[in-house]
Design a binder for these strands. Structure first.
Length: 937
RNA sequence: GCGGGUAUGGCGGAAUUGGCAGACGCGCUAGACUUAGGAUCUAGUGUCCCAGACGUGCAGGUUCAACUCCUGUUACCCGCACCA
C-alpha cells in the first residue's frame, strides 16, 4: 500500500473524530472491562514489549466491540516515582514538566499504533484530581486503624537517600540504583496488610487468575501453620517463645537460638560470655542483608551462657545467638532440632551440640505380630579403588551390604565390626559415620516370621586388606564382592539397604516423615498425628499453642521523596498525629525548584517551610505536616476503579459505575508485577470492600501475564547490549499493522520471544498479499460456496484462540484462509469483506482502508460475523489408516459413512493389504472422523 | 535449597479431548517472470543406509495409539531464598 503511514493516520483521525472507542454510552449492551497495566511514562518511550500486550488486549477489545459488548479499554499513567524525580533534578525542571513531556511521547506512540483506548477516561496518578482520592483513601485506612506509624528497622539506600520496602530492597540491593542497602531505624507509616493475609489467600478462589499467578500470590503471603512453644530460662524469672512448624520434634530440641536483635539477649547472657556476645551482635549489625543471606554461608553464632528448660522433659538446653535466626520472622527465636532440620544440623555439627533422633524413617510394610530386633547395615568403602563391599546372595536375596542383628548390650558399631569380620573377614576398618536409624518391616521366609527392625546405617573406610578367615553358618552361601557405586545403584534392590546407602553417603538431618521415637507420649506416631498430639499437650500445660505465621509483613508506606502523593497527616505538638480534613484534600505538592533529598534522609518536602508549617485541624495550634510521601505502589493499587468513573468529583468512583462495570474482566501485565502489584491492589480493594465502598471483595477476575520481547540475540533488550528495537522506527518503515501482526505472531503470548526482523518482513508480505487479494474480486453476490467451510471454521477458531491468548494461531489461521482465497480463480466482495473483518482486530488500519475501497461502511461500526456450526464440517475428509500404529495409507471418508463402511475402505487399501498379508487381524479400531488402526499379529 | 516454568527441524513456533508430529511463518534450494530484486509466482525443504526405518531433552512404563498420561532423570530460564 502506498504511503502506509498516511493511511494509518487517516483512520486514527477517523476513530478520534467519531469517538469510536468511547464506552459506557449505550444502554443495553453487556459491559466488558479489559485492562492493561498502565505504564510508567519513562523518558525512553514505548517499548516493543508494551506493544505486544497492548495489541493483544486491543485485538480482544476490538473483536468484542464488534460482537456487541460495551468494552472498557482504558489507558492512563503511573507517573509518580524516582526516575521522573531524578530526571527533573538533573535538568532543573519540575517533575511535573518531565512527566508531561513523557506522557505526550507515550500517547503519540500509542495513537500511532492504533490502540483502541477510550482516551476520554485518561488520567495520571500525578493529577491532583486523582491523587486527592489516593490521599482520601489513605485517610480511610487511618480512620479504620489500618495505618499506623512505627519505628522500625528499615532498608536504607545510601545513594537514593531513601527508605525502601522489603520488596524494593530484594536481595539486599536497591531495586532502582543497585546500591547495597543498609539497615537504619526510622519512623514510618505502615499499613496493616498482614491482617489481610488470610483474606488475600482465600480471596484467590474468587478469581480466575492463571495458576502461576495464584501461586505467586500464595508464595508471597507465605502461610505456615505451626505452634508457639514457651521456654523458661533457667535461673531467670523469664521466658521466651519460639515459633515452630515441627513441635512434634520437641523431644529432639537440644538447644535454642535467639536472633542477635532479640530483646532478651543481653539480659540473659552470663558475664563470662558478655564480651563475645556483644562482639557478635555488633558484627551482625554491620552486615547488611546481602552478607547475612549470602549463599552457602557457614553458620556462625555464640553461646550466651544461659540455658532454657525444655517444657516436655525439663532438660536444660543451651541458648545461642546466631544470625541464621531472623528477628523479623516468627518470634525471632527458635528451638533447634538438629536431627530433623538441615540448618540446625549444620550448626550443631559445627558447635558440637548433641543430636537426638526422635523420628525414624520407615521402610517396608508393617504387619501384625512383628518381632522386634535391633540391627545394622554396614557399608564399607575402599578409598583406593573407590569401591564398596557387598555380599551377593544371588537368587537368595540379591546384592546387599553387610547386615546383622545386635546381640545383648552390643552397640551398633561393635555389632557392625563383628559382622563385617564374620562375613567378610576384613578387620582393618575405621568408622566414618553412624547415621539415623531406620525402621524396617519385613518377612523372613526361613523363619516364617514378620520382623520390625531398627537398623543403624554405618559407613566404614577400609584401611588395609588385612583379613582373618570368615566365620560362616552352614546356610550362609554368598559371594563377597567389591563393586562400584553404579553397580550398587543398579543391583541393590532391598529397600533398607538402598536407603542405608543413601543415608551414609549424604549424612544430614532427616527432615521427612516417619515414626516417633525417644519421645514418650509421641512414640509410634507419625508426623501429622504427633504435631496435633503435641499441640494438645502444650495447650494443656499452658506452654504453647497452635500458631499460624505469614511471611508477608505490614506494608511500609512512607517514602522520603518529593515526587509522590503527600501523606495527608499533620503532627501537632498537643494532639499528636491528626488526619487532614477530607474537604481540604487534595494536599498538593508545592511548586518549587529544589527538591533534592536531604542528607539525613528526610523528605525534600521537609525543607519547604511554607509547606510544612500548618495549623492543627483539631486544636488550631501550630503544627507540621508529614513530609513523607506514598510509595509508587499506592496510585496503582486502585487506578482500575477510577477508570470506571474517571471524572467523578464527589467520590473516587460511584457505586453505580462500579456496579455497571462489575469488575476487571481481564487484566494483563508483566510477570514481574504479578506478585507485588497484584497483592497490593487486592489488599487495597479488600479494605475498600470491608468499609463498603466497592461492590466486590475481588475486583479483578482474570489476570494473565505476557512474555517479554527479547532482543534478536535472545537477551533482554537493553541499551548497553545495543539490541533495543524502537517501535517508532518499525511503524515508520513497515507500518503499525505490520508491527502489530508480527508481535501477535511471534510466538506463544505467555512466553518470551526473541525479535526477528526477517519474521516481521514475513508479516508485511502477508498484509501485502491481503491487499492483492482485492484484485480477485468478481461480481458475484454472497460467499463463494467453496470457501464457506473454511470461512466458518476460521471464524470459530479465531474466536476460541483470541479468548485463550492464542494470538499466533489466530494469525496462522488467517494466513491459511488467505492462501485458500489465493487458490481461487476469483472471490466475491463478501468473501473479501469477511476476511478484512476477521483481520481487523489485529490490523485495524489496512483492513479499514481496503474495506472502504470496496465500498463498505467502516468495519469498526459493523458487526462480527456469526459462524454456522453446520458449515464448519466438511462433507468429505481424508483420514489416516494405520497398521500397528504406523500410517500405511489415507482414505477419503464421507460424513455419512458408518463404521463398517470406513473399516471396509481401510482394509481395501492396496498398501494396507500388503502389510496385513500373512498376518492375523486382531482388531480394527475406528475412531470416527479421526483415524483407523488395524492391529495385526 | 524451595517453588514455578520450559525443552519439538537451520530459526520462531503448531498439534483444544491421547488419534497422520512439524500447521503457519522465517530461512534455505531450484526454477519462472525480469535491465534489476530485499517484488511476485511455481516446486522442494525433519534425519537416514529412502519400496523402508528412525524421530518431540534423556531412561523407563501404560495404551491398538503418547509431544500429550505415569515414574525417574538432565539442562536451561524465572521467582523466593537461613521463613524455623
Amino acid at each position: 500500500m502506498e504511503n502506509i503511514n498516511k493511511v494509518e493516520k487517516k483512520w486514527q483521525d477517523y476513530w478520534d473524530e467519531h469517538q469510536t472507542f468511547q464506552c459506557g454510552k449505550e444502554k443495553g449492551k453487556q459491559p466488558y472491562y479489559i485492562l492493561v497495566e498502565f505504564p510508567y511514562p519513562s523518558g525512553s518511550g514505548l517499548h516493543v514489549g508494551h506493544v505486544r500486550s497492548y495489541t493483544a488486549q486491543d485485538a480482544i477489545a476490538r473483536m468484542m466491540r464488534l460482537q456487541g459488548y460495551d468494552v472498557l479499554y482504558p489507558m492512563g499513567w503511573d507517573a509518580f516515582g524516582a526516575p521522573a524525580e531524578q530526571y527533573a533534578i538533573k535538568n532543573h525542571i519540575h517533575p511535573k514538566e518531565a512527566v508531561k513531556e513523557n506522557i505526550q511521547t507515550f500517547k503519540g506512540q500509542m495513537k500511532s499504533l492504533g490502540f483502541s483506548f477510550d482516551w476520554s477516561r485518561e488520567f495520571s496518578t500525578t493529577d491532583p484530581e486523582y491523587y486527592k482520592w489516593t490521599q482520601w483513601q489513605f485517610l480511610q485506612f487511618y480512620k479504620h486503624g489500618m495505618a499506623y506509624k512505627d519505628k522500625i528497622p528499615v532498608n536504607w539506600c545510601p545513594t537514593c537517600k531513601s527508605v525502601l520496602s522489603n520488596e524494593d530492597a530484594a536481595g539486599g540491593v536497591c531495586e532502582r540504583c543497585g546500591s547495597v542497602v543498609e539497615q537504619r531505624e526510622k519512623s514510618q507509616w505502615m499499613l496493616r496488610m498482614s491482617d489481610y493475609a488470610e483474606d488475600l489467600l482465600t480471596g484467590l478462589s474468587d478469581t480466575n487468575f492463571a495458576d502461576r499467578v495464584k501461586l505467586g500470590q500464595i508464595n508471597w503471603i507465605g502461610k505456615s501453620v505451626g505452634a508457639h512453644v514457651t521456654f523458661q530460662i533457667d535461673g531467670h524469672d523469664k521466658n521466651f517463645t519460639v515459633f515452630t512448624t515441627r513441635c512434634d520434634t520437641l523431644f529432639g530440641a537440644t538447644y535454642c537460638v535467639l536472633a542477635p536483635e532479640h530483646q532478651y539477649v543481653l539480659e540473659i547472657t552470663t558475664p563470662e560470655h558478655m564480651d563475645e556476645v556483644k562482639a557478635y551482635i555488633q558484627e551482625c549489625a554491620k552486615k547488611n542483608e546481602m552478607e547475612r543471606t549470602e549463599l552457602n554461608k557457614d553458620k556462625t553464632g555464640v553461646f550466651t551462657g544461659a540455658y532454657a528448660i525444655n517444657p516436655v522433659n525439663g532438660d536444660k538446653i543451651p541458648i545461642y545467638i546466631s544470625d541464621y535466626v531472623l528477628a523479623s520472622y516468627g518470634t525471632g527465636a527458635i528451638m533447634a532440632v538438629p536431627a530433623h532440620d538441615d540448618r540446625d544440623y549444620e550448626f550443631a555439627k559445627k558447635f558440637h551440640i548433641p543430636i537426638i533422633q526422635v523420628l525414624e524413617e520407615e521402610t517396608g510394610t508393617p504387619h501384625e505380630n512383628e518381632k522386634e530386633k535391633q540391627s545394622i547395615v554396614a557399608v564399607v568403602h575402599d578409598p583406593k579403588k573407590d569401591q564398596y563391599l557387598t555380599i551377593n546372595w544371588k537368587d537368595k536375596g540379591g546384592r546387599l551390604f553387610v547386615g546383622g542383628t545386635r546381640k545383648n548390650q552390643e552397640d551398633a558399631v561393635a555389632c557392625a565390626k563383628r559382622e563385617i569380620q564374620e562375613e567378610t573377614g576384613y578387620t582393618d576398618i575405621e568408622l566414618v559415620c553412624e547415621d539415623f536409624t531406620i525402621r524396617h518391616h519385613y518377612y523372613a521366609y526361613n523363619k516364617d516370621q514378620y520382623f520390625a527392625i531398627e537398623a543403624t546405617p554405618l559407613l566404614f573406610e577400609l584401611k588395609s586388606d588385612k583379613k582373618v578367615s570368615q566365620k560362616l553358618d552352614p546356610d550362609e552361601d554368598f559371594e563377597v564382592e567389591w563393586v562400584d557405586r553404579s553397580t550398587i545403584e543398579k543391583e541393590v534392590k532391598d529397600e533398607l539397604h538402598k536407603k542405608s546407602f543413601e543415608y551414609v553417603l549424604n549424612p544430614g538431618a532427616m527432615t521427612g516423615d516417619g515414626t516417633h521415637v525417644n519421645s514418650e507420649f509421641l512414640n509410634g506416631l507419625h508426623k501429622e498425628d504427633a504435631i496435633n498430639t503435641m499441640i494438645g499437650w502444650l495447650e494443656d500445660h499452658e506452654c504453647g499453642k497452635q500458631q499460624v505465621n505469614y511471611k508477608m509483613r505490614d506494608w511500609i508506606f512512607s517514602r522520603q521523596r518529593f515526587w509522590g502523593e503527600p501523606i495527608p497527616m499533620i503532627h501537632c505538638p498537643k494532639c499528636g498525629w491528626v488526619p487532614m480534613k477530607e474537604e481540604d484534600l487534595p494536599l498538593l505538592l508545592p511548586d518549587v525548584a529544589e527538591y533534592e533529598p536531604t542528607e539525613d534522609g528526610e523528605s525534600p518536602l521537609a525543607n519547604i517551610e511554607d509547606w510544612v508549617n500548618c495549623k492543627c485541624p483539631k486544636c488550631g495550634g501550630d503544627a507540621k505536616r508529614e513530609t513523607d510521601t506514598m510509595p509508587n505502589w499506592a496510585g496503582s493499587s486502585w487506578y482500575f476503579l477510577r477508570f470506571m468513573d474517571p471524572h467523578n468529583t464527589k467520590e473516587f468512583a460511584s457505586m453505580d459505575a462500579m456496579k455497571y462495570w462489575n469488575r476487571v474482566d481481564w487484566y494483563n501485565g508483566g510477570m514481574e508485577h504479578t506478585a507485588r502489584h497484584l497483592l497490593y491492589a487486592r489488599f487495597w480493594v479488600q479494605f475498600l470492600y470491608n468499609i463498603g465502598l466497592v461492590p466486590h471483595k475481588e475486583m479483578i477476575w482474570t489476570r494473565v501475564s505476557h512474555g517479554m520481547v527479547l532482543g534478536s540475540d535472545n537477551q533482554k533488550m537493553s541499551k548497553s547490549k545495543g539490541n533495543v528495537i524502537n517501535p517508532d522506527d518499525i511503524v515508520k518503515e513497515y507500518g503499525a499493522d505490520t508491527l502489530r501482526t508480527y508481535e501477535m505472531f511471534m510466538g506463544d503470548y505467555q512466553m518470551d520471544a526473541p525479535w526477528s526482523t526477517d519474521s516481521l518482513r514475513g508479516c508485511k508480505r502477508f498484509l501485502d498479499k491481503v491487499e492483492r487479494l482485492k484484485d480477485k474480486i468478481n461480481d458475484q453476490e454472497g460467499y463463494s460456496e467453496k470457501l464457506e467451510p473454511i470461512q466458518n471454521k476460521t471464524i470459530k477458531k479465531i474466536e476460541y484462540d483470541m479468548m485463550h491468548m492464542g494470538y499466533n494461531t489466530v494469525i496462522s489461521s488467517l494466513m491459511i484462509l488467505a492462501n485458500a482465497y489465493d487458490d481461487m480463480e476469483s472471490i466475491t466482495k463478501e468473501d473479501y469483506h469477511l476476511f478484512l473483518t476477521l483481520l481487523n482486530p489485529i490490523a485495524p488500519h489496512i483492513t479499514e482502508e481496503l474495506n472502504e475501497q470496496i465500498g463498505y461502511s467502516p468495519i469498526c461500526e459493523g458487526e462480527w460475523p456469526i459462524y454456522d456450526e453446520e458449515k464448519t464440517v466438511e462433507n468429505t475428509k481424508e483420514i489416516a489408516v494405520q497398521v500397528n500404529g504406523k500410517v500405511r495409507a489415507t482414505i477419503e471418508i464421507s460424513i455419512d459413512d458408518d463404521e463398517d463402511m470406513i473399516r471396509e475402505k481401510a482394509l481395501s487399501c492396496l498398501n494396507v493389504m500388503k502389510h496385513i498379508e500373512g498376518h492375523e487381524v486382531v482388531k480394527v479400531i475406528v475412531i470416527k472422523g479421526k483415524i483407523v488402526n488395524i492391529v495385526i499379529r
